[in-house]
Design a protein around this nucleic acid. Structure first.
Length: 280
DNA sequence: CAAGACTCCTGACGGC
DNA sequence: TGCCGTCAGGAGTCTT
């Protein structure tokens, strides 16, 4: 599923193909793909615009246009972008024709992905926490951030207003590397563990970007049509019932906040609840 | 404020 | 073989 590393990979690959190109025409075959403005305003607002920038914020793709506006995209579960002359695909939801004869295709099997054309980014971006790979994120930030709330770690890491860009896979992988149980309460994480969590998150994301993301099913592909390779390095995600590569204990899967959650029963000890009695 | 339920979607997969 | 139910998951919205 596209998370920060996948979106970063997509933006990097699209950038050289889009910068300097002008939109010649716009087709939308699944209207709900366009989050805003209306369909007609979206089409007419894009026609004639030139791409001047392409970057990522959280899991959003932002394309700067020459009139100061922005085309914003979100892949959600199964969205993909391609820049090609033609594309034979049953799941094309939108196509922006470009002045070099190619088109920017937005393909999305499950139809959750969205495109928007906005003047200001806050018209479409929800409140977002800091970027985990920015210099602002260090042990001190994490210690304070965890202490200021009382939430289970797994849902907290998925909360985009807390920290931007983590999804289900990398949250599980980071918690394993930090030796933290997903149900642990944030304000009960010792300082050194908070430091370890920052290191784990940054290492996992950086390595996943190097590997161009993760592809364990047929959904995520780069604009070049290639799968990512980070799934080869998963330590817990999708490994239920298998031995932990670190300690040999079994990987377990539970559901937390309607989300499959994978952890090692050895490396990530269960939190001791307040008032629980010690086993005799 | 925290957390769970529900919604949007459809391909893949298990069961019979 | 084929039908049917279930699952997966990002994020917004609504309840508890």
């Amino acid at each position: 599923m596209p998370e920060l590393p996948e979106v970063e990979t997509v933006v990097r690959q699209l950038r050289p193909d889009l910068i300097g190109r002008t939109v010649t025409d716009v087709e939308v075959s699944w209207p709900r793909t366009v989050a805003r403005p209306g369909l007609r305003a979206f089409r007419e607002g894009l026609r004639g615009r030139r791409f001047e920038g392409a970057w990522r914020r959280a899991k959003y793709l932002v394309f700067d246009l020459d009139d100061g506006r922005h085309l914003v995209g979100h892949l959600r579960m199964t969205g993909r972008f391609y820049v090609q002359r033609t594309l034979d695909d049953a799941w094309i939801r939108a196509r922006l024709g470009l002045d070099d004869g190619r088109s920017l295709f937005f393909v999305d099997v499950r139809k959750f992905g969205r495109l928007a054309l906005v003047r200001e980014l806050d018209e479409i971006l929800p409140p977002l926490g800091p970027e985990p790979l920015s210099e602002a994120i260090d042990g001190a930030w994490m210690r304070a951030a965890l202490r200021s709330r009382r939430r289970m770690l797994k849902p907290l890491l998925l909360d985009q207003s807390f920290l931007a860009g983590l999804g289900n896979i990398y949250a599980d992988e980071a918690l394993h590397r930090a030796g933290l149980h997903p149900l642990r309460l944030s304000d009960r994480v010792p300082g050194p563990r908070a430091d370890a969590l920052v290191t784990a998150i940054r290492d996992v994301l950086a390595r996943a970007i190097e590997q161009q993301g993760s592809s364990f099913d047929t959904f995520y592909r780069t604009p070049a049509g290639q799968p990512g390779n980070y799934q080869e390095e998963f330590r817990v995600y999708g490994r239920e019932g298998l031995p932990c590569s670190t300690c040999g204990r079994l990987i377990r899967r539970i559901v937390v906040g309607q989300r499959g959650t994978h952890f090692c029963t050895g490396c990530q000890p269960a939190p001791r609840r307040r008032g629980s009695t010690r086993p005799r």
